[in-house]
Design a protein around this nucleic acid. Sequence first.
DNA 1: GCTTGACCCTCACGTCGCGGCAGGCCGGAG
DNA 2: CTCCGGCCTGCCGCGACGTGAGGGTCAAGC
Lengths: 252, 252
Amino acid sequence: MAYTVGQVAKVARVTVRTLHHYDEIKLLSPSGRTAAGYRRYDDADLERLQHIRFYRELGFPLEEIAAILDDPTADPAAHLRRQHDLLTGRIGKLQEMVAAIEIAMEARRMELNLTPEERFEVFGDVDPDEHAEEARERWGDTEAYRVSTRRAAGYSKEDWLRHKAEQDDWNRRIVAALTSGRPADSAEAKALAEEHRQLIVRWFYDCSYEVHTGLADMYLADPRFTAYYETIAPGLAEYLAEAIHANAISRA
Amino acid sequence: MAYTVGQVAKVARVTVRTLHHYDEIKLLSPSGRTAAGYRRYDDADLERLQHIRFYRELGFPLEEIAAILDDPTADPAAHLRRQHDLLTGRIGKLQEMVAAIEIAMEARRMELNLTPEERFEVFGDVDPDEHAEEARERWGDTEAYRVSTRRAAGYSKEDWLRHKAEQDDWNRRIVAALTSGRPADSAEAKALAEEHRQLIVRWFYDCSYEVHTGLADMYLADPRFTAYYETIAPGLAEYLAEAIHANAISRA
DNA sequence: GCTTGACCCTCACGTCGCGGCAGGCCGGAG
DNA sequence: CTCCGGCCTGCCGCGACGTGAGGGTCAAGC
């Protein structure tokens, strides 16, 4: 029930120096000392340290942690609830970042560039300035920049032409399927959805069925992607999204 | 296409000082300067800054970020893939922490204490020491500590007795349902599952149907919780878990 | 042409959360 | 009694900026 600094450090995965520091700033002072001046920690100290570690892990400054832990109106259960909320919030934020990365990957794949503002949106809310004022320039005229980044991506010109040919071929075939009235859950449409996924895997990044259906939803939710598909054929975004979902389900 | 420090700082949500710092350590030097010595950033600089921000957000030291970004063998697409992987990894870690919090909440609810080692398990892998050597002492004899923490939780003695009565009543009724052979997806069992959830909500923490089914899985996966329910009645852990799932489905 | 205020520059010192080492005092095993 | 590992208290250093101080720059309005 009583532990030395070393023991505490080991079990809590912190260094002895850290415990000294916490003692110095009175964030966590051991409940007692031995005659020789050795720090003695008890179970309550360990519990406090666990909470400290938790908030620290989430990036809270030590001073704030002290305020949280010394708040007399918060019982232990409240701390657990708060931690639970914090975690789910963080997870949500990270999932948004994942979504942003997937957007970036798809934007790259479609040779569609993002404005600087869009590229940083993931890191927080934008102050509702103009924002879409200069939205026109995101579609055009940066051909030179595109070419340069394309070179940087490590593809040779021939690779790129081959990919473009495959992509064009696929485009033609899905437009044919759409205009000929084949339902989006038909075997043919599903096969085209699967080909779409394979195209991504071969040329860009590993795209599981889960990620693929995520993309499908994105095509509908994000006007930039919807617009991209709509320029190929009206109704294509929705058709493709449905086919992707049907394909994913039938492969599960 | 050309930005001043202030403009970059605004769009990237960093301070001017940070940009100065990145310039000092040559992590991100503006592509040019004006005659007066003003820093001028271009789109490529912004792209680099975006990556820097990303890795920084995930806690990477600047030096390492420089190494990652200056690695000539990594094309832009590879960065996106890497970032995607990093994020999903982080999410996984946070979800484990959520699970640990839920365990802690349930452990608290059941008056079951965790050993110090268990309490810190969430923060990383344990070196496979003895670990369960002294597992016996986690079940017993810390009555005094329990009482003290219970007081700290803000419940009065009467509150606690009322809760205990409710809990005992529920215990009796679910054991009756189990032994009388009522199927776990019967209306009666589902009602008892719902009561279980309400009991948690009233006395401990907000427990959605989602969290509730999470608990059900935990009762089966974690021997500590299984053992707890088994001591009340053999087969109860499984029965309750099934009833909780059935209840959650029928409420969805 | 001149002021004014917002923006930019370069030092340079301060802060936070420790890491790491020096120099010295315990404490139990042999 | 003597080790060796562990503990103690300074104290300096570092990474990633924050925060002025002291001074030049630029576009807008008079």
